[in-house]
Write a protein that binds this DNA or RNA. Sequence first.
DNA 1: CTGTTAGCGCGTTCAC
DNA 2: GTGAACGCGCTAACAG
Lengths: 353, 353
Amino acid sequence: MSEITIVEIAKKCGVAVSTVSRALNNHADINPETKKRIMEVIKETGYVPNNSARNLKRTDAKCIAVLIKGITNPFFSPMIEVIEQEMEKKKYALVLRHVEAYEDEIDVALQLEKEKRLRGIIFLGGGYRHSSEKLKALNVPLIFSTIGSPVSSKISKAEYSTIAVDDKLESSKMVEYLISLGHKKIAIMTEGSEKMSVGQLRLQGYEDALAAHNIEADEDLIRYVDKDMDHYSLENGYKTAKALLESGVKFTALYCVSDMLAFGACRAIIDAGYKIPEDISVAGFDGLNMSNYYSPRITTIKQPLDEISRETVKILFDIIDGESGHQHIYFPGELVEAESTAPKKKKKSAKNS
Amino acid sequence: MSEITIVEIAKKCGVAVSTVSRALNNHADINPETKKRIMEVIKETGYVPNNSARNLKRTDAKCIAVLIKGITNPFFSPMIEVIEQEMEKKKYALVLRHVEAYEDEIDVALQLEKEKRLRGIIFLGGGYRHSSEKLKALNVPLIFSTIGSPVSSKISKAEYSTIAVDDKLESSKMVEYLISLGHKKIAIMTEGSEKMSVGQLRLQGYEDALAAHNIEADEDLIRYVDKDMDHYSLENGYKTAKALLESGVKFTALYCVSDMLAFGACRAIIDAGYKIPEDISVAGFDGLNMSNYYSPRITTIKQPLDEISRETVKILFDIIDGESGHQHIYFPGELVEAESTAPKKKKKSAKNS
DNA sequence: CTGTTAGCGCGTTCAC
DNA sequence: GTGAACGCGCTAACAG
């Protein structure tokens, strides 16, 4: 179990540790032959430098951390791919870290910053509000991606960047669309967390759209997912839709603030014997890949993840290179009209099949 | 940018560094009041201990690494949750690391082992064959989960554990089921990588089942997904199914070796104007959550992920505690009959609708 | 209960 | 081109 160290490699090669270190780090001042011999011994012994010790000394590590809130969310997968590509181009190393639901992403970031020499941190998902002290303690550029401002009310917007779609606006766009199809009794399924959240913002968009068309918001049509379960899961979508259907409240369209919820809801609606979109129109949000493969294909707001990802990286490097300050950018979402929504049928609500 | 260290905290509190260290590590021998004062200063300053330095010293870190191959695969999500719970019970820390497709999971493990004081490593997914030297260099218990043996032919099975379903056997079970429904022209969509892989094992199961029923394997019915794309993606399933449909080859059932492929295939079949299961039966493998929410629900082989996960952790700790040696366990999969498969219609193939 | 001190493994000055 | 020595931030003895 005794780990092999650089000292032993040095002994085996009959050189000093510093020479081994130079060989390891592609240093210039070293005899190619010496280097070759050292590298051979390293290969033989299977020696791997201790990264902890390295990080303790190193100052020039080009490293960026990406913290993702929620491992089960397929939403981020395509973003990660793009970010990885971009980082590769820039020759920066990437540390991917999943942040569990119970963890605070800022705490994780603080820890990571000590562990590695981070040049910047990208947050994917997560909360809107963070302690300003902690945020300030993070001495590297912070980019919040897919999270619109404000991240903290107590901290200047010049201290971090945000790149996202305007959840409230896009949400109202979707509801406007449903209204344009003739729907008036539009149910919404969202997240009921007390704090400011994507779910809350999208709910506001829903309310705005209804208000703009003088449609009275009906409390019974606003449904919150079970907060004791994964908020944006299939199960939660199913369960919440089932409860809605069984409550007997009439509605002709159901807007789910996430595609995952929409999938679950669709299944519940189908199981209840209704047809989508003939009896009930269903709309989602996010533009997950699956929304285009589900049956029916889900009408959704597609977030331009490629652009968001690329811009996220670009802004980060602009800041690192001192070419710009922090920015707050909104990208437009794309309303994808698919099979799950249709004009409201005349004289027939969902409940009297 | 100058990082705050334990020394400065000590100075600020007027105590020695060791006292701060003790406060930090919940050591017993410390005055509660002193500790409280120290913790306050720590909170004020936003100090976070440097983990690299910690790991350099610490010898008793109870830490387990979980390496996951393929971030986009939702298959592992539920496993991670269970493993996290179990680790919490055991009071062990968990390091989650995603291994990219181009990375070698063993190399990543080697690096991680140096960085942290690992007590064990769990591999989720990944290849079947690994260099025995590297495997040996890993001086901690290795558990390969959802990967059946052998991991290496050159290394003794007593050097690592495997917990998985018997892919070949379970696969043949599914094909047997399709045959029992009267299907004879059963297409398969699998992964065509040269090396030993889950896809290959499941293909063997398919061939075994056909052979057992004297059904001649038809080369045209064996379809490989595009290896330049993510193997088990919706797109790949769609694309491969589309090509199969357009080739004009007749078949009444399509068996996809992964649910993700099945979802994509279903969409392609529906788009081509066929009905599932009336015209074509579709079967998957894995038992993803989504298979129960897709429309139609997908007939699949459900892997007992909860049990596999729990057993994975159990075996690891049995080995750590010296209570047992390495083991190789197969769990049975569960054939879930759902809406996507039906008995073959008489006198009517999929092609003459 | 608390302070002093010796390394953990490595990278990096400096001399040589 | 190479080696010796120092210190990164921290924990764990060992004294006090």
